[in-house]
Simulated scan of single mutants.
Amino acid sequence: MKPNLTTLLPALSCLLFLPANAQQWSPEQANAWHKTQPWRAGSNFVPSTAINQLEMWQADTFDPETIDRELGYAASCGMNSARVFLHNLLWEQDSEGLLKRMDQFLTIADKHKVGIMFVLFDDVWDPNPKLGKQRDPKPHTHNSGWVQSPGRDVLVDPAKRKALEPYVTGVLTRFKDDKRVIVWDLYNEPGNMNTSAYGKVELPPEEKKEHALELAKLCFEWAWKVRPSQPLTMGVWTGDWSTKEKRDALNAYQIDHSDIITFHAYTDLEKTKSMTEPLFAYGRPVVCSEYMARTAGSKLQDILPYFHDKKVDAYQWGLVAGKTQTQYPWESWKQTFTEEPKIWFHELFHKDGKPFDKEETDLYKKLTGN
């Protein structure tokens, strides 16, 4: 259905006349933007040939052929968006090359009518990222090669944290008015302790949360210097946000400074509802930027129709089973697997494009009208 331009003009005017160095959008500006968008349904995307963000984007392993094919799988079932992770080391390695490959990626995504939410930082999995050739996957293990951004050595050092500013402002400035980019997610799961996998080399929880909060503050400060035409967000993922009073300092900062509210929910439908509905009180668009973990109770058939009914944009984890091996559960870090689980944890497609469960891809087609 085509939008009515008469009704959208007031909404668009809220965005067109933002002052220079404007900060957080008002709820009215955020909702005005949201009215210009379709309901977004998609995945967290990394091509099956990449084990992590570095392998996805580095020049030697950037794989546009696979990206094109696999975003085609997404489009074939009606997905119209993808959430995609970047890494600060890519900027330090070759900033112009990174921007060029991002532009190439966006061209491919746009061909498939897939809008992109980029993620700039990430506190999850290996705290010691290194450029160059990435390790091979650990057999039968969930996300055995994913890396944090920035690494722990940068996160704990105030001077090194501040040196990340050119990465944030450079990427945002290049794509701040690019219609192929729909959202900027500044920092994924700040403060995550990775206790299931990398707990032995991490920081004490409160110390990591303190460092994460400082980086979160810098992220918004730097992003506001650019003030892209797309919304800025930083999703809550753990703790209690059922009321304002129950939020911890990090959750409160993330929610109170985001243009649109994003969150993660790897749980069953009833708990997902209890995590989603308190966020409506902020009067801003709400997006679930990570969900679907089948054997943890987070099932697409239960939860996607709920998000559709509530106009909550939704991004499941994973698209095509590949080197990240996230069809294996989190428990694969502690429990030995010798073969692929019968019920996949994440992911929607095999490498050849065959759905893991056709009922799921049919549901996407039904809800997105494709």
Rank of each mutant, 00 (worst) to 15 (best):
W25L: 05
W25M: 11
S26V: 09
S26I: 04
S26K: 13
P27D: 07
P27R: 09
P27T: 15
E28G: 03
A30I: 00
A30T: 08
N31T: 04
N31S: 05
A32Q: 06
A32P: 07
W33Q: 02
W33P: 00
W33A: 02
W33E: 09
H34R: 09
K35Q: 12
T36H: 09
T36L: 14
T36S: 02
Q37G: 08
Q37A: 11
P38I: 10
P38F: 04
R40C: 14
A41F: 12
A41G: 12
G42C: 10
N44S: 11
N44R: 15
N44H: 09
N44K: 12
N44P: 12
N44C: 05
F45R: 01
F45C: 05
V46K: 13
I51N: 04
Q53R: 13
Q53G: 04
L54S: 11
L54R: 12
E55T: 01
M56P: 08
W57Y: 07
W57T: 04
W57G: 04
W57N: 07
W57R: 06
Q58Y: 05
Q58T: 01
Q58K: 01
D60W: 03
D60T: 15
D60H: 14
D60Q: 14
T61C: 06
T61P: 08
T61Q: 07
F62P: 00
F62C: 02
D63Y: 03
D63E: 09
P64F: 01
P64E: 15
E65S: 14
E65N: 15
T66Y: 04
T66Q: 14
I67N: 00
R69Y: 14
E70P: 00
L71N: 10
Y73C: 00
Y73T: 10
A74T: 01
A75L: 09
A75G: 03
S76E: 00
C77I: 12
G78C: 09
G78S: 05
M79A: 07
M79K: 15
M79T: 05
N80M: 14
S81L: 12
S81C: 12
A82P: 03
A82Q: 05
A82L: 02
R83G: 05
V84Y: 02
F85I: 03
L86E: 08
L86I: 11
L86F: 01
H87D: 10
N88M: 10
N88K: 08
N88L: 06
N88I: 06
N88Y: 14
N88R: 08
L89A: 02
L90D: 10
W91Y: 10
W91G: 03
E92Y: 11
E92S: 15
E92Q: 11
Q93C: 10
D94A: 10
D94R: 01
D94Y: 07
D94K: 00
S95E: 10
S95Y: 13
S95R: 13
